[in-house]
Each structure stands twice: as structure tokens, then as C-alpha cells.
Design a protein around this nucleic acid. Structure first.
Lengths: 369, 369
DNA sequence: TTGTAGGCGTTATCAA
DNA sequence: TTGATAACGCCTACAA
């Protein structure tokens, strides 16, 4: 009885009157109609006489009822109306990385088309608290370029919703959209070899979740949790070994951060390991741009003294004339979206490989040794 | 009775066994424990013996129970764990506009800090179907630079959740973070006047939701639904009228699209209206960059023949040496996030104005008339 | 440490 | 055209 009284009180103070506290039920009660009717007034105006609908809307306005609660509706309909995006880094990083921005543009293009929201899921790399993933109210997920052993990724894959992975990792628990990194980089290797470069250095992005900065040995290369980087290094190795260059003599330097500054410092470290290189291969454009800046600072001319190559084909690099591999990042985003949202596509291929283009820029030149 | 039977059947086929169909309740039943216990196993591990918790998790794994349903949890806790972002354009536009990207970086910085998701709400400008806003499961909203009469904005303000508006419109239904556009542009006007410019042209961004491209009369300037643009024009007028220049003789050209191409075509139109201008003022950097391209194409030297100014201080414009007003876009995003998410801030000032900086570039020069 | 049970606000189904 | 009823799946105060 006590409980019932409290409940009643709630009805009157918290519910009918309180700010923002009106509900579909309270409105129905107030009007003396059923909840169904109120619900229909919002969701199926045609199922209801205009007069009654008008009465409902008026009362709603008067009572400060803003329409059906989205969460309650989602619970009932089993639809969130949104998909989630998961990244390795903090969400804000995505807006600093030109490739991520392009990917997001493509993805949101499809979200717009489908009228579906995109939820950027916070996932702090220095925490293992995956609740943000577990608790995201979404109908599906896209994971953008994550390491194989990421706990957030695992939490995502455990959710009973469809999932698409961009770039990495490959797993049959989810669809994949990516490129053939190994072949693309092999191409780049052949380009350098055809220019006469045999003594090179390499700088690459992070190979694992551990914060490693520095020289990479073969074991680390092969065990890398990021298969995109692993494949790019493998492609490079393919090319150089085919040309008779011993891979283990080539310095490979890793940076955990992906930034201009990281590229610069990595380039510096490579030069200290082997001052005699004639070409520097970066596994991303951002690193390449950082490297070029550092080389110039050290009075090395690019490409006359040292050739530099990148990867990705981001606008800034193309504008700067960096020799690179251009990958269709925006298309990758679109494809990921389509895989998740387009019913026609949803039941077809689960592995989409997009084509890349080799771009000969002005950052590479023949070496006459 | 019939109904009860069906219910039972559901329990066994759809629930306990079906793929992904397990619930907290079914798990509890299976284990012969209460729902509370299962809930605690996930949410309060310390409220429960390790052994029992282990049993629960094992059973969950076996039955394919992925943990508490996020939506049901949200309904119960009255927390979505996300805030929504509303834009005038399609969401994908945000990733094409450098200022929007910078704003988003700032906003997500705060989301990351708070462990809160950011939901990008789809809002097609050519539809009035605001259900995406009505149905967004969020604890708050940020609106980025919208016109006063936008229906999506209205729907957002009708929602019983806290709201922050960036730039425009100003309304006491929501907090605001912005800059003093009028004063900043007045400054720019004074700069041009001090350089000797009296005959100028103006190109501006859209002034209303109607798709207007072309000359802007005074009535349209003053009735503009975008007060940012209105204020920038007003600041310009302030300066030039103070210098004795009749505002109504200055051609003002509007573009609905905000792009390099739009800036170029607007510049062309201004030149046709008055080929004798010595300076061209753009209300954004993107338009200014488009204009500079167009002027060069027409063999006008910038700044020798015509000075050009921008607004915003986006990286590309600063790199190109455009004379502009630099506004702290990322800080604006952060501030918006803080206003919404930081409890300490939440109950203080409701109107945050950020400082701007005048940047004298190489796109303006004295005019010797 | 574990259980009971009410309520979060809605929509689907079916009947009237 | 309108209404009654039964879920949707969970959290949490309270009781044991």
C-alpha cells in the first residue's frame, strides 16, 4: 500500500506535471484515451481521426510532452537507428588524420543515404574498459584499422550485430574492406629498384599495441598485430630480395604515433643507423612528409640526395609531389557503409578489395651509383 | 491460455535457444538464480561470490549471451551515454569542410575525456523529416552553425535534453559558444581602408535556407537567417560607412554551396558587376581561396591588382598567406563539449565568446589610387 | 550474498 | 477508428 501511494504521488508530481516528465501513458490518461491512440498520433497519423490527433498534439504541447521517448522506442522496435564506429585511437584522433577523415566522409555518405546515425564510440587506448563498446546502442559496427589483439575489437565482435572491418584485422567474424597492401608495396619496391636504389631505409607505423619506438627486428615485423603494416613491409621485402638485396641489412624504424613529428624523428634515426641510404620508404604519407621535412632540415636534397616514398595518397602528399600509392579511402568508407547498410549488398561478398594506384611524384629520382 | 502457451514456447525456442536471443532473465532461469544476480555479475562483480560469477559468465558464453542489452539498460538508467551533433548539411559535408573538422576534433576531445559517444545525426537539408532528431538516443545535443528557421533545430530544441549551439543561432533555449563576428569583420574593413581600398566587392556564404545564388540586396542581408553571415556583413558595412563609402554601391554576391568552386564563380560574378574593384572580401577562407584561383585565372594579380581577404583561419588559407581572421575553431568545439559534459561548467555562464585574431597575410596590399 | 518485484516508456497484435 | 494487453530487457530498492 505504501508503495502504491508513492507511485500515485509520482504520477502527479514527477509525471504529469514535472518538467519533461510527461509520458505517452500520462498523456493518454489525461486525455482519457488509450496509449495506442497517442502512439498512433505520432507514428501513424492516418490511423486516427484528424480531430483526435489534433487534441493529442495540443495536450502534448500543454503538458510539455516532446514525443515518444527514443530509447523506449528502440527497446520495443529493436532498432537503434545508428551504427557505431570503432577506432584504435581516441575519437578525436580521427579528425587529425587525413586518411581517417576521408574514410569517415565515405562512411557518412552512406549513413546519410540510409538516414542512419553514426555513433563515434570512445575507446581510450590506455584503458581496457570496453564498456563503451558493450553499451553502445547500435545496429551494427564498423571498425577502422585495428590491431588483432585489441580488447575493444573483441568486445565489438562479441556483440550480436553485423560488423564490417576496414583494413584490419582480417577475421571471419566480420566482413572486410581493404586493399592489397603487399602487392602495392611490392610495386613501390620495384619502382625504387628500377631507379637504381639498393641501399634504403624504412620507417613504419606502429606494429603492435605496445608503445614501441625504434628499430624493428624481423621477429617483430612478422609478429606485428597490425597486418596492414606487416603486409607493407612484406611487399617491400619481396621486391628487394627479388633484386638481390638482403632485407636484414635494411634499417626499419617504427613509431607509435602517427604524425609529422614522428616521421621526422624516425627519419633522423634511420639516417643515424645508415647515413649512406639513397632512398627512404615510409609506410604512410604522413610519415613521409615528416621525413622530407627532416631531410631538408639536414640539408639533404629530396630527391637528388635521397628519394622518399609514402603510402595512402592523401591530398597534402599528392600536392607536395610525394611518390606514393594512392588508395581510395573515401570509397573504402562508402563500401564499409554499403556492406553494413545496403540490404542488396548485405548478403553478397564478404571481402571487398579495392584497387590502388601507383603515383610517381617528384620525391623520387634515379640513383647513379 | 492460448497466449500463455505461446509465451512459453517463445521462452524455449526464441529465447533460451535461439541465436543471440538469450536475455538476462533467461540466463537467470537457466542457472536457477535471480535476475539480480546475473545483473550484478556484469555491473557489480564485487556484490557476488567469484564462484557464482564464474558460473554466470560460463553459462552466458554457452548460451551466447553477450551481456546486458544497451538499449534496455539505457531505458532503465535514463542515460544514453552519447550526445548528438546536428549540422545544416548532410553529415558527410562535415568531413569536407576544414573548419567543421577542426570543430569536431575539439568536441570529440571532450567526449573522449568524458567517455561519452558522439552521434552524428543525419539531417538531409532537402527534407523536413525531422524524425532522425526526434529519435536520437542522446543525453544532449550540439548544433553546429544552423539557420534560425531550421526545422531540425526546432526539433532538437523541443527535446528535453540540454543543448549547446555553436555560432548560430542565438536563442535562450540553448547555450551558445561563438565569436564576435561583427567586430572581427569591422577590423578587417578597417585594415582594407587603411590600405586605401574604397571600391570593393563581397562574396558571402548562404544567407538563408532557400537556395539563392547571386546578388544580395540590403533586405536580404538584414533578414538573413544565418546571423553569423549577417554579422560579418554588418561589420564590413560598419567599417566602410564609417570611412564614407556608400554600402549600397558595393556588390555582394551570395553562394549556397560552400566550396572552392563556389568562391571562384562568385568572384567572377562580382567582377562582372564591378570590374573596377581593388579588393574582394570573402566571408570565409574557402570562398577566398576559390576567389584567388579565379582571379589568377583571369590574369589579375593578387594582391597587386586586387586584394583578397578571408575568414576563419583554416590551415590551407594560412599556408597560402591569405589575410584573414583566425578563429579558434577547435577551442570552440572543446568549449561546446565542456558546456554540455563538464558538470562544473554546466551551471555557469551560458554564453561563451571566444577571441579572434587578425592575420595579415600576403593577399592584401596597399592600393594607390 | 542472493532474491523479489516493480517500473522505465514504448509498440505490436489483435479485438472491438 | 479506437482500445486492451502483452511484451521489449533491464536496474535497483528493499527484503531475506
Amino acid at each position: 500500500m505504501l508503495r502504491r501511494l508513492r507511485y500515485r504521488a509520482g504520477m502527479h508530481s514527477g509525471r504529469l506535471v514535472g518538467r519533461g516528465g510527461a509520458t505517452l501513458a500520462s498523456l493518454a490518461r489525461e486525455l482519457g484515451v488509450s496509449r495506442t491512440t497517442v502512439s498512433n498520433a505520432y507514428n501513424r497519423p492516418d490511423q486516427l481521426s484528424p480531430a483526435l490527433r489534433e487534441r493529442v498534439m495540443k495536450a502534448a504541447e500543454r503538458l510539455g510532452y516532446a514525443g515518444p521517448d527514443p530509447v523506449a522506442r528502440s527497446l520495443r522496435t529493436r532498432k537503434a537507428g545508428a551504427i557505431g564506429l570503432l577506432l584504435t585511437e581516441q575519437v578525436s584522433y580521427a579528425f587529425r588524420d587525413p586518411a581517417a577523415v576521408a574514410f569517415l566522409e565515405g562512411l557518412t555518405l552512406e549513413c546519410d543515404r540510409a538516414g542512419i546515425g553514426l555513433l563515434l564510440v570512445p575507446a581510450s587506448p590506455d584503458s581496457d574498459d570496453v564498456r563503451s563498446v558493450t553499451r553502445a546502442a547500435v545496429d551494427g559496427f564498423v571498425a577502422y584499422s585495428m590491431p588483432e589483439d585489441d580488447p575493444f575489437l573483441a568486445a565489438m565482435l562479441a556483440r550480436p550485430v553485423p560488423t564490417v572491418i576496414s583494413d584490419q584485422p582480417a577475421t571471419d567474424a566480420a566482413d572486410l574492406v581493404g586493399i592489397d597492401d603487399r602487392a602495392a608495396m611490392r610495386n613501390m619496391a620495384d619502382h625504387l629498384i628500377s631507379l637504381g636504389h639498393k641501399r634504403i631505409g624504412v620507417i613504419c607505423m606502429r606494429l603492435g599495441r605496445d608503445q614501441h619506438n625504434g628499430v624493428v627486428d624481423e621477429r617483430r615485423q612478422e609478429g606485428a598485430g597490425y597486418h596492414v603494416q606487416r603486409n607493407r613491409l612484406a611487399g617491400l621485402r619481396d621486391g628487394f630480395e627479388a633484386a638481390g638485396v638482403a632485407w636484414d641489412r635494411i634499417p626499419v624504424v617504427e613509431r607509435f604515433d602517427h604524425s609529422i613529428a614522428a616521421g621526422a624523428s624516425a627519419a633522423g634515426q634511420v639516417l643515424e643507423l645508415d647515413p649512406g641510404i639513397t632512398a627512404l620508404v615510409a609506410t604512410s604519407d604522413v610519415l613521409a612528409m615528416g621525413a622530407i621535412g627532416e631531410l631538408r632540415r639536414r640539408h639533404k636534397r629530396v630527391p637528388q640526395d635521397i628519394s622518399v616514398t609514402g603510402f595512402d595518397g592523401v591530398k597534402a602528399a599528392l600536392d607536395a609531389g610525394v611518390t606514393t600509392v594512392s588508395q581510395p579511402v573515401t570509397a573504402k568508407g562508402r563500401e564499409a557503409g554499403r556492406l553494413l547498410l545496403d540490404p542488396a549488398v548485405r548478403h553478397r561478398a564478404r571481402q571487398v578489395m579495392l584497387p590502388t594506384t601507383f603515383v610517381a611524384g617528384t620525391s623520387t629520382a634515379p640513383h647513379h651509383g
